[in-house]
């Protein structure tokens, strides 16, 4: 292991992230020349109203910029939560949805869309809030099921998460049948994506994901301890029970925020941590930030492909991440097999 190598990967990731953001804001179904884009951004920074600057300014400032930021945040959240859950469960198959956040968010969103509910006259707000509360509520329920005086049992968390998710997907199907007038919209929500999303989602995503990321960053050494057998960790002076609860809370918060604003987007939370682990190793002081940065890069790119591949038609971003993520995961598996030989 050569430590400088890890920093190179991190710095490269940051440069890549900056580049990807610039490209993603500049490219889309509407063509905006780079010079035009910069002058729009400059004018808006000086306080100009995008609506007065014309259609292209609304596209850049009202749609693309917030969408790219949102995609980056959700990618970071899913990859970061994936790392945390994989450490917590000591299970390489753990993904951000393992404790039921996706099913909880799905139920929350489906109920609001299916029955046409609103909060203060806004359905966008209702969908986001209801999905978020559903996601957090369900992960707390799963946590309570797995909790006993001996602490949180990983096995119970895993099984309870699966059982609750299966139950909720049945409820979601029923809600979809009864709220069938809005069936198509529900299906599109469940497929995941960032179409039309932006500022009205960022108020939820920014605080929750920032708190989650910061929390897990402070716990990066403790995440390493979780990889040891519990007795060994205890003998090193780590309060394993407390660490588990904190990690679970931070990761669930991020995953819940991510899924409630982006829908169910698979594979980013699974593949990015594994890819990062291959390059920088299992030490969470490097693995966590690397996964977070590359998670953002991957999600912004996936969304870019989703909205440009067949423009002006938009594809569900979850389909793009699965389309590229699953083969890449298989490639990682074959590499791991070769390494074992």
């Amino acid at each position: 292991m050569r430590p400088p190598h890890k920093y190179v990967v991190l710095v490269l990731g940051l440069i890549l992230l900056a580049l990807v953001i610039l490209v993603a804001v500049g490219v889309g179904s509407v063509n905006v020349a780079p010079a035009e884009m910069l002058s729009i951004l400059r004018a808006v920074l000086k306080g100009a109203d995008p609506a007065q600057l014309g259609g292209q300014a609304v596209v850049i400032v009202g749609l693309r910029l917030p969408r790219v930021i949102l995609a980056g945040l959700v990618g970071a959240a899913l990859a970061g939560a994936g790392v945390a859950f994989q450490a917590l469960f000591q299970n390489p198959l753990a993904d951000p949805y393992i404790v039921g956040v996706s099913a909880g968010a799905g139920l929350g969103a489906t109920v609001v869309i299916g029955f046409g509910l609103t909060i203060v006259g806004s359905q966008v707000l209702a969908v986001n809030l209801s999905a978020f509360i559903g996601a957090l509520g369900i992960s707390y329920l799963v946590y309570r099921i797995a909790y006993s005086r001996q602490g949180v049992s990983n096995l119970l968390l895993l099984l309870a998460g699966m059982a609750v998710s299966a139950f909720l997907s049945a409820v979601i199907s029923l809600v979809m049948v009864f709220g069938s007038r809005n069936l198509a919209e529900t299906v599109y929500w469940l497929m995941g994506g960032f179409t039309g999303r932006g500022w009205s989602e960022l108020w939820l995503a920014v605080p929750c994901i920032s708190v989650g990321l910061a929390g897990l960053w402070f716990l990066r050494r403790e995440l390493n301890m979780l990889l040891l057998p519990e007795d060994d960790a205890r003998s090193l002076g780590v309060d394993v029970g407390r660490v588990k609860v904190l990690v679970l809370g931070a990761a669930s918060l991020m995953a819940a925020a991510g899924v409630s604003v982006g829908g169910l987007i698979g594979f980013v939370g699974l593949v990015v941590p594994h890819g990062a682990r291959l390059v920088v190793g299992p030490d969470h002081r490097y693995l966590f930030p690397t996964s977070v940065i590359y998670g953002a890069v991957v999600m912004i790119l996936a969304d870019l492909v989703a909205r440009t591949a067949l423009a002006p038609l938009e594809l569900p971003v979850g389909a793009i991440t699965a389309l590229f993520g699953a083969p890449f995961f298989l490639y990682l598996l074959s590499q791991a097999k070769a390494g074992r030989r």
């Binding site: 889309g28 509407v30 014309g54 259609g55 749609l63």
Partner: peptide, 27 residues
């Protein structure tokens, strides 16, 4: 599913829909 970018770039002064429009899209 409408493409919001295409709509915004055209700078319409009126967008007309019927009751099939999804409420989130309208918002």
């Amino acid at each position: 599913n409408i493409n919001y970018e295409v709509v915004a770039e055209l700078s319409p002064d009126l967008v007309v829909a019927d009751n099939s429009l999804q409420q989130t899209t309208a918002e």
